[in-house]
Each structure stands twice: as structure tokens, then as C-alpha cells.
Design a protein around this nucleic acid. Structure first.
Length: 418
RNA sequence: GUGGGUAUGGCGCAGUUGGUUAGCGCAUCAGAUUGUGGCUCUGGGGGUCGUGGGUUCGAGUCCCAUUACCCACCCCA
């Protein structure tokens, strides 16, 4: 065996598949409660969509994109995040005429060329939600409440919602000036990476975990200090609504986010024992117009499916449900085999999960297999049964057996299945 | 890009100061008086010990190189 899965990718198998299925079901169920429509966009897009949308200066665009050139010499990129593609589709199909606000969700793979580690993959999957058309803090609150509900429905505990506001473009500019002014005084004491951040995107300095930078960061001006009255009002109302909804949060002025398109509200869901966050998002009022549409307020978030799985695992929460087989039809001899095939197929057509022997094994081996399948009932069909038209049906967990007509198998299983 | 750890049958591991045909548990398959599972017992199959060099009479075990994976920094989901 010499070909293995590429670095940063992984196969999802066994119980983990059932966990994923449950998460996906949970996503669909929650989104239905909010009337959020599913949207499925391509896995790759024109590179320009991301370089413009996500931001030329971000790490994601600068060094983490899977970009390739087609035979037609066009540059395409595997999507590194979900929002840009949804905005593109929203504009391309004029989805804004349907209704306002319009809400979309997706569960899709994303790709980033990074060093993999715990909870971080090169191909990872996100559940994301995007709202278009509402500038109200009620929209921010609703978006947050979607994420909150999913987390709570899955049973994940010890999760903290961190909330911050970056302000609108005006406040953000003012804040940048204030921050740059402040950081310049302490420039010499900043770590090397922060020095380069200072030049490119000063906001990022707040994200630094370097010990030496902490005292500087702690005393840095807060985004809250430079908020204009409208942005301040927006932020306060958002808090009011969340409180009314019973959703707890903590203000954390160091939450900055790595994608350039955020304005005003930003938030992250952080869970104990999980590196990074399990989800995050915010408002992005400038993105739709940046990508060529009319000025459109918007907000959204994304959660990492792998991180949700990690959280479930670390909290010993098992939501996986392995489907069980309703009945196993064993066979002896050629005639029995034919009859078993006829029966299994018939039962499947009627909607039962039925299994039979297709590798000609002994009855004993067949029963072992039935046991591994978790079959609820089993019958064996041989010459005697064909002659009499009756079979012994066995309850695999209690070992009770009863005799019934072959034609009554379906009715029998149905009568037990309530 | 930087640092640390690990690489032995499908999975999880043991392999003592280098020595005879490389073991164990789980899984898998087959049997245990011939048409019935879960427990137990017996047996079978499956590994060129990550790869390439080197030291040695002899290396899974020592040395060098290389690759992969894991973890952490960075950044994010």
C-alpha cells in the first residue's frame, strides 16, 4: 500500500459517518425552523472572486488558496470559504428579487493549503448561513441564534459566544488611525510578525498571542472607543435582542476575524479544549457591492463540521445512530437460495431493510453475519420451509422464535415495529 | 516556514544490553458430531518491521539520510 490520502485530508468512515449524518440532519432541521433555503454552489470559482471578495491582504488569499490554471488558461480556485460563492450566485441569478430578506445555508467542503493539525484540515467542511437584505441588528441576532441553536441541539456544552463590533467603514477608519497611533509608540517592543502586521493590517496585532505583545495589546484602544452613534446603537440593540432571546455572550474586543469583508458585528463560538473556534461570522455590508451588486446589507457565519465532531468527541457525546437491519433471510440449498432472493427483494420493495446470504456460506456463518448486521429478526429458508410455506422467525435479541407463513413476514415485522 | 513526537500484519501494541523460522490482543475466516448468531475452545490466512544506505558473522533492535503522519507555533473552521 503506497498511495495514501493527501496531507490534510481524511476519510470519514464507521461511526463517524453516522455522526456526520446526524449533524447534517440537525442543520437541515434548524434551518427549516428559520426558513433558510439550502444553496449549493460550485467547489471551484474564478480566482478573482476570492482575491477581491475575501481580501487581497488576507492570509487565506495570500498563501492558502488551491489555485490552478485550466486548459483555457483561466485561473480557478477551490473555494477557501463559503460566503463569496453564495454572494456570486445571489448576484448572478438575481436572487434579491425573490424576497427580502433572503436567507441561505450550505454544508460544503472548503480548501486551504495550511499545515494540518488537530481540528485543522486542508479539506474541511463548513455549515454556513448567509442573510441578505437586512441592516437591522435583529438580523445579526437571528444569524447568531441559528448557530447557537445548532450547538445546543447537538448537546455541545462549555461553549462561549464572543461578540465584538468593528464599526462601519467610517468608524473602522477612525479606529485604525487610533490603533496605529497607539502601536507606533510601542513599535520597538512588538514581536517581528506584529511589526509586519502593523504595516499591512494593524487590526491583526490584536490577535497576537506572543507574550511580549500582550501588555501592549491589553492597553490598546478598543474598537468601542471610536464607534459612531449609529454603530454603537446597532451594537447595543444586538446585545439587547440576544439577551431577550436568552443567548449568553461575552464582549471581546480582540475578536477581529481574518477575512476582510466584515463590518460592524463579528462573533466567534469557542469551546473548551478545542483549538481555535468552532464557528464564527459577522456582518458584511460591503461585500455584495464590492462584487458588483447594489449596496446590500448582509450577515452570516460558518461552523466547522470537523470541529463540531471534535467537540462532541471531547465531551463524550455520541449522537451516531447505526441503522439496524430489520430482517435477515438465511438460506439452505439452491431452492432455498432462490426463495431467499425473492423474499429479500420483495421486502426491500416494501421498505424494509432486509439482508440475505450472497456468498454461499454455512447457516452458522450466515447467522453470525446477521448478528453483526444487528438484524432484529432472522429466518432460514430451506426445502422444508418451501414445502410447508412456513418459517421459524427468530427475535435476535431475545432468541424467541415463532412460526409464521412466509407471506406474513412483512406484516409480522411491521406489527412489531412501532 | 519553525519546533517536538511517532513510524512493526486491517486496528491497537510488545519486542529485553543486536542472535536461531518477528510475537500478542482485537478483527477476519473455518471447525467444535453434519439446518441457526451473541459466550467459550481449537485452528487457518495475513507483515520484505516507513524507505534508502551503512556498521556487523548477524539488525525490528546501533549510525546516517530521506519520506510520511501526528502535535504545537502562525492563521483559521
Amino acid at each position: 500500500m503506497n498511495i495514501i490520502a493527501p496531507k490534510g485530508t481524511k476519510d470519514i468512515l464507521g461511526d463517524e459517518v453516522y455522526t456526520w449524518q446526524k449533524i447534517e440532519e440537525g442543520v437541515a432541521r434548524v434551518c427549516k425552523l428559520f426558513s433558510i433555503e439550502e444553496i449549493r454552489t460550485p467547489i471551484f470559482e474564478h480566482t478573482e472572486l476570492f482575491s477581491r471578495g475575501v481580501g487581497e491582504a488576507t492570509d487565506v488569499v495570500q498563501k492558502e488558496m488551491y489555485t490552478f490554471v485550466t486548459k483555457g488558461e483561466k485561473s480557478l480556485t477551490l473555494k477557501p470559504e463559503g460566503t463569496a460563492g453564495v454572494v456570486r450566485a445571489y448576484l448572478e441569478h438575481g436572487l434579491y428579487v425573490n424576497k427580502q430578506p433572503s436567507k441561505f445555508y450550505y454544508v460544503a467542503p472548503n480548501f486551504r493549503y495550511e499545515q494540518p493539525q488537530s481540528g485543522r484540515y486542508r479539506q474541511f467542511h463548513q455549515f454556513g448561513v448567509e442573510y441578505f437584505g437586512s441592516a437591522s441588528p435583529a438580523c445579526d441576532a437571528e444569524v447568531i441564534s441559528v448557530a447557537d441553536m445548532l450547538i445546543k441541539n447537538l448537546g455541545i456544552k462549555n461553549t462561549t459566544l464572543y461578540l465584538n463590533t468593528l464599526g462601519g467603514s467610517g468608524c473602522r477608519k477612525k479606529y485604525n488611525e487610533a490603533l496605529v497611533g497607539y502601536l507606533r509608540q510601542s513599535y520597538d517592543r512588538l514581536c517581528p510578525t506584529c511589526k509586519s502586521r502593523f504595516e499591512k493590517n494593524p487590526l491583526r496585532v490584536l490577535d497576537c498571542k506572543e507574550g511580549a505583545c500582550q501588555p501592549i495589546i491589553d492597553k490598546a484602544p478598543s474598537t468601542l472607543d471610536t464607534l459612531g452613534p449609529e454603530c454603537r446603537n446597532h451594537f447595543e440593540q444586538l446585545q439587547e435582542i440576544l439577551t431577550a432571546m436568552g443567548i449568553e455572550f461575552k464582549i471581546n474586543t480582540k475578536i477581529v476575524r481574518g477575512l476582510d469583508y466584515y463590518t460592524r458585528t463579528v462573533f466567534e463560538f469557542v469551546t473548551d479544549n478545542i483549538h481555535g473556534s468552532i464557528g464564527g461570522g459577522g456582518r458584511y455590508d460591503g461585500l455584495v457591492s464590492l462584487l458588483g451588486g447594489a449596496q446590500t446589507p448582509a450577515a452570516g457565519f460558518a461552523m466547522g463540521i470537523e470541529r463540531l465532531c471534535l467537540a462532541l468527541l471531547s465531551q463524550n457525546i455520541n449522537i451516531a445512530e447505526k441503522p439496524k437491519c430489520d430482517i435477515y433471510i438465511g438460506a439452505i440449498g439452491g431452492k432455498g437460495f432462490l426463495e431467499s432472493q425473492k423474499l429479500v427483494h420483495g421486502l426491500r420493495q416494501k421498505g424494509l431493510t432486509a439482508e440475505s446470504d450472497i456468498i454461499s456460506r454455512s447457516v452458522k456463518a450466515q447467522m453470525k453475519y446477521a448478528d453483526k448486521l444487528g438484524a432484529k429478526y432472522s429466518v432460514i429458508i430451506g426445502d422444508d420451509e418451501i414445502v410447508s410455506g412456513k418459517v421459524k422467525i427468530k427475535n435476535m435479541s431475545t432468541s424467541e422464535t415463532g412460526e409464521i407463513d412466509i407471506n406474513e413476514i412483512f406484516g409480522f415485522i411491521k406489527s412489531k415495529d412501532v
